[in-house]
């Protein structure tokens, strides 16, 4: 399969995926020490999805994310340093330490928030897409959701509304096989989530979520159609998460060796490296350099997050209303 991406874009894509991976692996390590408060849901393994979709988006396109949102944030351009501080509950965090892992948002880059409510983002993204349509901006809205959310009424309502209003919206179902500890083989009674698309009068596309290039191409077509007034698309990305539903989940519901096998054979970063170095356009050294830079960035973000102050007591009462 050929790609239309130039070298600069390829390096950008790699950097995005590598940053997500490094970020998540580091949170995984640090969470185990007990220093990170609350709970976190890691995106490691799914990087090609967020990056493959968001590579097509501008700062004024919106995405809505999920409780497993770090990857979407990074791919959409949220600063990882602020994100790390947020996860550590610090005043310097993206949300001043008031949102935490499940609520990282940065509207200035079109990131409408990770979301603690499964399926919560579907209606919201219909709204950003509606605003774009009414204002004639050609922007799109992308709703990321999982196989668990695919069974939520909000997602059905959102897909229906998007089709009724012919909104520039893309519904990206990231099917990682498990809603918490329940397999999608149990909870999704049809073969594929994308099979539901025709019922809403929109195209349904299935794509291999380990293959950045496949996601990138399929997302590109859906987003182009949306920008041109062609209405919504349901894109099912089949992938896997490398860690549990949340950190601390022993994942006893998974097959022994399942994750290890995927990491060794299908990992999106491995596949990407193999492919772009094979045709000589990009060298291993270039990618290694990115790996080092990203590691430095994430290491540094943790050092800063640890040192940064927690929110002042007065912050408890601020930011509830614009005015009250």
């Amino acid at each position: 399969m050929t790609t239309t991406l130039n070298r600069e874009s390829l390096l950008k894509a790699y950097r995005s995926m590598r940053t997500i991976r490094e970020f998540e692996e580091r949170v995984h390590t640090d969470f185990a020490t007990g220093e990170i408060p609350g709970f976190v849901h890691l995106y490691a393994g799914e990087e090609a999805s967020a990056t493959g979709v968001c590579m097509h988006l501008t700062g004024t396109d919106y995405i809505a994310s999920t409780h497993r949102g770090h990857g979407h944030c990074i791919a959409k351009g949220v600063d990882p340093v602020g994100m790390m501080a947020e996860i550590w509950g610090k005043a310097t965090g993206t949300c001043k330490g008031k949102g935490g892992s499940m609520h990282i948002a940065d509207l200035s880059v079109g990131m409408l928030g990770a979301n603690g409510i499964v399926g919560g983002g579907g209606p919201l993204i219909c709204g950003t897409a509606l605003a774009a349509k009414i204002r004639g901006t050609k922007d799109v809205g992308v709703c990321f959701f999982g196989d668990g959310a695919s069974n939520q009424g909000t997602i059905f309502e959102a897909m229906n509304l998007a089709a009724v209003w012919k909104l520039p919206a893309i519904f990206v179902a990231e099917n990682n096989g498990y809603a918490e500890a329940t397999s999608s083989k149990y909870s999704v009674p049809c073969e594929n989530i994308a099979d539901r698309a025709p019922a809403f009068g929109m195209p349904g596309v299935i794509v291999d979520g380990f293959d950045f290039f496949a996601v990138h191409q399929a997302a590109g077509e859906a987003i182009k159609r949306a920008r041109e007034g062609g209405g919504p698309t349901l894109l099912e990305v089949k992938l896997s998460r490398y860690y549990g539903h949340f950190e601390g989940d022993q994942q006893t519901y998974r097959a022994p060796g399942e994750v290890q096998r995927l990491r060794e054979t299908k990992d999106c970063l491995l596949q990407f490296r193999r492919r772009v170095t094979a045709d000589g356009e990009i060298t291993n050294e270039q990618l290694d350099a990115i790996d080092r830079e990203v590691k430095t960035l994430i290491d540094d973000s943790v050092v800063r997050a640890k040192a940064d102050p927690k929110p002042a007591a007065a912050e408890l009462l601020t930011d509830v209303y614009v005015s009250y």
């Binding site: 579907g122 209606p123 709204g127 950003t128 509606l130």
Partner: peptide, 20 residues
């Protein structure tokens, strides 16, 4: 709207985040 309160009320909320 369709009879779909969650869908369109949420859409109103999302549109409010995007300038309407």
């Amino acid at each position: 709207t369709p009879i779909s309160e969650s869908g369109y009320v949420g859409a109103a909320v999302g549109a409010a985040c995007n300038g309407l």
